[in-house]
C-alpha cells in the first residue's frame, strides 16, 4: 500500500466526479387477505450521470441503473403450521464498460475500452423459495423453523466481466458469485 501511495498515483485521479439525475415510476399491487398474500411491483427508472472529465462529455447511465425491475413476493398459508413463500426478481442488466479489443503490449494483454457504460449485462433473474413451520403461537409470541433456497433456479447472474487467465488460456469472462444457489435453515422466535 505504501508503494502504491509513494509513487505518483493519486486516488482522486481514479474517481469520476460529476452530477446527474434519477427519475422513474413505480406501481405496486398488494394483496393482504386470504390464504395467498403478497405484492407485485414494477419500477421503470433511469439514472443518468455527467462528469467533469473532458473525456466524458455525454450523459451516461449510472453503473447501478436498472431500467426495468419487477418484484413478485407471495406467501401461501396451508394451515396454522405450514406456509410457503416465493420471491421473484426480474430486472434489466446493469451497464458496464467493455473493451473494444485487446492488444499485446510489453508481453502482456491490455484492454482498449469502448464508450463508458455503453454495454449491459444480461437481465437479472432470481427466484427464492421458502417454507415455514410454526411450532406455536401463544400470547403473541411465535416460533418456528424456516427452510429457504436463494436463487432456486441456479441462474448465473453476472456481476461484471474481466479478462481472465486460466491454465495458459485467456478469455473475457463474466464473474458471478461462487455459490449460485444458497440453501439455509433458520429458527425464528418472534416476541
Amino acid at each position: 500500500m505504501f508503494d502504491f501511495l509513494r509513487t505518483s498515483y493519486d486516488l482522486n485521479e481514479l474517481l469520476l466526479k460529476g452530477d446527474g439525475e434519477n427519475y422513474g415510476i413505480n406501481v405496486m399491487l398488494d394483496k393482504r387477505t386470504g390464504r395467498l398474500t403478497g405484492w407485485l411491483s414494477y419500477a421503470w427508472g433511469r439514472a443518468r450521470r455527467r462528469f467533469e472529465n473532458p473525456l466524458y462529455r455525454k450523459s451516461y447511465p449510472a453503473s447501478h441503473e436498472r431500467i426495468h425491475e419487477l418484484n413478485v413476493v407471495g406467501t401461501y398459508r396451508f394451515n396454522q403450521r405450514w406456509s410457503v413463500g416465493a420471491t421473484g426478481v426480474f430486472a434489466s442488466g446493469t451497464p458496464f464498460t467493455a473493451p473494444k479489443h485487446f492488444m499485446l503490449i510489453n508481453g502482456t494483454l491490455v484492454s482498449e475500452f469502448g464508450e463508458f457504460n455503453a454495454n449491459r449485462l444480461k437481465p437479472y433473474f432470481r427466484i427464492d423459495l421458502s417454507a415455514n413451520y410454526n411450532f406455536s403461537c401463544k400470547n403473541g409470541r411465535e416460533s418456528g423453523i424456516n427452510f429457504s433456497v436463494y436463487n432456486a433456479t441456479c441462474r448465473a447472474n453476472h456481476l461484471f466481466y474481466r479478462l481472465k487467465f486460466h491454465k495458459g488460456k485467456f478469455g473475457y469472462r463474466p464473474v458471478q458469485f461462487l455459490l449460485r444457489i444458497l440453501p439455509s435453515i433458520n429458527y425464528y422466535y418472534k416476541f
Binding site: 485487446f102 485467456f170 473475457y172
Partner: peptide
Amino acid sequence: TVPIRKEYTDV
C-alpha cells in the same frame, strides 16, 4: 488488435 473472446483461448 486481439478480438474480444468470451470463451477461453490458448495464449
